[in-house]
Simulated scan of single mutants.
Amino acid sequence: MATLCSGCSNTYFDTIQVYLRDDAAATKFLKLHGVLPNDVQCPNCKLPCTYRASKHSWYCGRWKKIAKTKRSKQCPYTRSDYKGTFLEGTHLKPSQVISFVNHWLHKQWNHHTVIKILNFAPTTSVDWRSFCAEVTERWLENQEPIGGEGIEVEIDETLFIKRGRFTKQLWVFGGIERLTKKCFLVPLLNKDRSARTLVPIIKKFIKPGSVVYSDSWRAYKQLCDQGYSHFVINHKDHFVDPNNPKVHTQNIERLWLDLKQWSKRPGIRQKFYKQYLARYIFLHTYEEEKVLHHFFVEAARVYPPSGVPATSSTSSPEQSTSSTQASTSSA
């Protein structure tokens, strides 16, 4: 079994230079990250198969004697290198897949660049954006809660407004650790910001014992009864408590500012906002040089090369949650 990558570093331009036209290097990269199998066992002979790089496939081809005869027959087993993986069903080259993901993980992502540089059809670009979005959505669903005993967390909700012929509103609720900047974001598609909606989200994404800072929104009043230390700043009077400078929500406010700068581009539909937020948090969590590595590690977890689907469960944020394939409609 080949050794898997323990954490490579690739800048945006490094990836272009190394993998844009080199399928051999791209295939090696995908195998090192567990996206493609490093070996395959023939289910008939129970022995390793041979890899055919030119066809991206595995085959057995062993000759076995036929019982009670002098004849032999060749094992016909063969399978695509892509079977059950993130690349299953695609006609794209490995170099094209890595180049697409590399650009999708960039802040200035756009379809026109992909279509022009990688020679993609518009529908192919839309489809692959959805495949990438599913990986980051699954990653988001598997995140452990933030905070913990004595760890400071700021929470808040903000309103996104899309102006156009019809003005659209979307409330987003989130939290951020002050020290590590780990965060979570949840779109409130029903626009309900009551305690009935927000408290279960807080309990799901923030560990008990956390020190929570918020504004004076009434939905947060019962947090002390839910196992949290809760401090409130009334923004009508101050943005930082003059008696206790630690009581503020400036980190989450900065997060909102950054997120809204990202969301200025037109065309983001409300039903795709979970995809959008998952991508944002993914890029916010990892260093720029590490983000490609972590994406393909997660892609291998969601689509294991064995072809066996990842275990799904909705019982806790630590466990994988099954999700429907993201729509391929343009967002």
Score class of each variant (00 low, 15 high):
Trp171Leu: 08
Val302Leu: 03
Arg138Met: 10
Asp14Asn: 07
Pro200Gly: 02
Gly61Arg: 08
Tyr303Gln: 12
Lys64Arg: 14
Ala299Asp: 13
Asp39Phe: 13
Ser316Tyr: 04
Arg279Leu: 15
Asp23Pro: 05
Gly307Ser: 14
Thr324Gln: 09
Lys83Asp: 09
Arg62Glu: 07
Lys65Arg: 12
Ser125Trp: 08
Glu144Ile: 15
His294Asp: 09
Lys162Asn: 12
Gly307Gln: 07
Tyr59Ala: 10
Ala310Asp: 07
Asn243Val: 07
Asn44Thr: 02
Gly84Ser: 10
Trp109Ile: 15
Ala25Lys: 06
Leu189Ile: 02
Glu253Thr: 05
Phe29Leu: 05
Gln250Leu: 13
Leu223Trp: 00
Pro304Asp: 13
Gln226Asn: 05
Phe205Tyr: 10
Ala331Glu: 09
Glu288Thr: 11
Asn38Phe: 03
Trp128Val: 00
Lys204Leu: 02
Lys290Leu: 03
Gln96Ala: 11
His294Lys: 06
Lys207His: 04
Phe295Glu: 00
Trp63Val: 08
Ser315Arg: 15
Thr123Phe: 15
Ile202Thr: 06
Arg218Leu: 14
Ser125Asp: 12
Ser330Leu: 06
Ser327Lys: 08
Phe29Lys: 12
Asn251Cys: 01
Ser99Phe: 07
Ser216Ile: 05
Phe205Gly: 00
Leu292Ile: 15
Thr285Cys: 10
Gly150Gln: 04
Leu4Asn: 12
Ile155Gly: 14
Cys224Thr: 03
Gln222Val: 11
Gln143Glu: 10
Trp171Glu: 07
Pro122Gln: 01
Arg193Met: 06
Asp192Tyr: 15
Asp23Gly: 08
Phe239Ile: 03
Val97Ile: 14
Lys203Arg: 11
Thr136Ala: 03
Ser80Gly: 07
Glu141Thr: 08
Arg301Val: 05
Leu283Ser: 11
Leu255Gly: 00
